[in-house]
Each structure stands twice: as C-alpha cells, then as structure tokens.
Design a protein around this nucleic acid. Structure first.
Length: 155
DNA sequence: GCCAACGTTGGC
DNA sequence: GCCAACGTTGGC
C-alpha cells in the first residue's frame, strides 16, 4: 500500500468538488513524472492526501482513496477540453489517470506553514526546493504524522 | 503581481 | 543532442 499527496487548486477542483461528486477521474495531469506515478505505482486502496495549492492558505485539507486501475484520461481526446492533446490517439495513449473517491475533509486545514514546522515532515517532497510535481509519493511515517497532527489540530 | 524553478518546444 | 526561449507552477 502506498500513500500520496495530490495537489489541486481549490478554484479548479477542490475537496468540496470531490465531496459532491463522490468519485472523480483525476484527469488533466500533463506532467510525465506525475502521470508515471498514477500509471505505474498507484494501487487500488492507496490513500491520498488532498492538498490545496495556489490559494491563500495552502495545505492539506482532507483524504481521498485510489479506487481504480490506471485508465485513459479522456480529456486528451476532447478538442473542447483545456487538456486536449492533439498528439494522443487511442492506440498511442499519452495520458492515464486513476479514479479517486472522497474519504473525508479535515476539520481544520493542515497548512503548509504547519507542515514546515513539523520535524517529521522535513523530507516531504513538496517541501524540497523547486518541487512543483502535482502528484508525489509520501512515506507511511509521513502519512501517519500528518494524520496525527491534523487530528490533534482539530480536537 | 512578482519571481524562482522547472518542463517543454523547436531550431540548429 | 544542445540550448535558448517560452510557458507554467505556486508560494509569497
């Protein structure tokens, strides 16, 4: 079982959107490294920390779960989509994604500021210089530390 | 809105 | 295959 951190902009598709939809295909990723994590490493049942970026208080706002095998990201074939990729064909896929299911919203955001202050999280990928990947693996220890800290913060 | 860091593109 | 130019990300 693996643990992940998925970034999303709350104005584009925040955790409230996921809560409302229940399940969503994590389409629109157009970075090969991030895609490879979904295509090659994500497994059904993996837990996902849901991170809001590009917002007033960036941080982890909740939890989601991987509930599908990798599958074609359909937006690559849709000429009306922002994520349309003219180079992609059904026979020669460029982009794959997985389905995410909503699990929970934290009572209180676990902010980037707090993440930085947590000594157990100093190796977290998103804290490393210049890391802009929208999907990054998280170790079990880091995952547990974040869950624990977010529980304490909200009690 | 600024800007550092990174990824991608395309000419050569 | 190099690398300059450009676009994007995302914290501040």
């Amino acid at each position: 079982m693996n643990y992940w951190l998925f970034k999303s902009e709350p104005t584009t598709y925040g955790i409230d959107h996921l809560k409302k939809d229940g399940v969503t295909a994590w389409s629109g990723v157009r970075n090969y490294q991030a895609r490879n994590f979904m295509r090659d490493d994500a497994k059904i049942g993996d837990l996902v920390l849901y991170y809001h970026s590009n917002t007033k208080i960036p941080g982890i706002v909740g939890l989601a779960k991987v509930i599908s095998e990798p599958k074609p990201d359909l937006t690559q074939f849709d000429p009306t989509s922002d994520y349309f990729d003219p180079m992609a064909t059904k026979a020669n896929l460029r982009w794959q994604c997985v389905d995410l299911e909503y699990v929970e919203t934290f009572k209180k955001i676990y902010s980037l500021e707090e993440i930085k202050e947590n000594n157990k999280l100093k190796n977290l990928r998103i804290l490393q210089k210049g890391n802009r990947l929208s999907i990054t693996p998280v170790s079990k220890d880091e995952f547990c530390a974040i869950i624990k800290a977010s529980r304490e913060a909200s009690s």
